[in-house]
Design a protein around this nucleic acid. Sequence first.
DNA 1: CATTCATTGTCAGTACTCTGATATGTTGTC
DNA 2: GACAACATATCAGAGTACTGACAATGAATG
Lengths: 157, 157
Amino acid sequence: MNASDESTMLPKSGEGKRGEEGYIGYLLRQAAAAYRLRLDRSLSDLNVTPPQFSVMTMLNAYPGQSNADIARVALLTPQTTSVIIANLERAGHIERKAHEVHGRILQINLTPAGQRLLQTCRSRVHAVEQELAQNISDSDVDALRRSLVTIATINAT
Amino acid sequence: MNASDESTMLPKSGEGKRGEEGYIGYLLRQAAAAYRLRLDRSLSDLNVTPPQFSVMTMLNAYPGQSNADIARVALLTPQTTSVIIANLERAGHIERKAHEVHGRILQINLTPAGQRLLQTCRSRVHAVEQELAQNISDSDVDALRRSLVTIATINAT
DNA sequence: CATTCATTGTCAGTACTCTGATATGTTGTC
DNA sequence: GACAACATATCAGAGTACTGACAATGAATG
């Protein structure tokens, strides 16, 4: 049951103010949440979250980075990445060792188990990505990527 | 200082795999995080967060909804909106009262103070929205809205 | 009427993400 | 060498968001 008697006044998702006429921030949040949820479920049996997959992908491409490096690349704060990296370390997917020269820096690398896990994750993520691309025209996908990069870059502190 | 000796190998944000060629989920997450951060800072002196603004906007448009209603409209779980609504209630921006007929439902409404606050928030959010729209072509904004609605709606449970 | 089912609200637990603050290590300047 | 400036890591606190589980209310079915 609905709380109001005029429950028919509630627009359905994707219509009116809740659709293409709404705030961009609102649409952005919902789209990101929906996509993340799909990814979440697709990776849930592997006990890997989308942010963890992101960090592992970066460490695979650029091994030996520090927590601060990861934070810069991911456009996140060091405190945030610290939590994600701590969870990855606890699960045995990554290892940290002190930098030879710089005593305070901790260099991070994927463990062999982490590399194998990353491979499995990658195919899952690709599948979700494919599914998405099939529901949007190619030209819209191009515009989408362009716009998202712009939004992410405008005020990237 | 950088953790690796080949620090120049790190691509800058918006370039290569970190740009228009990367995962859509990755771009989506970064764009949503960047936009949310801008909104966060623009509203910080009012002690209102973007999700709280969303909920207040919905309650203004459709007064008397329940927590479960809000969750459905916002495409979030009731647990999530419950926390947001509890914070809004603690701050005195909203009020909850039992439904006359249905004993368990709690209907939510903005307080007068909450309505005034919403007006202030709205102008701030509009400004951020304007700033964004100026950096993206009109046709790309249209495609962006279209794509975001599609993504948010595809598997909206 | 009794049982079942769906809805509502909420508790507990986990993870992600921010701000603010603190301690430690490196570098550059005097 | 002493000191200031910067980078790194980390602690604490708050808000957002999920899954899983539970009790209470109302509706539907037998």
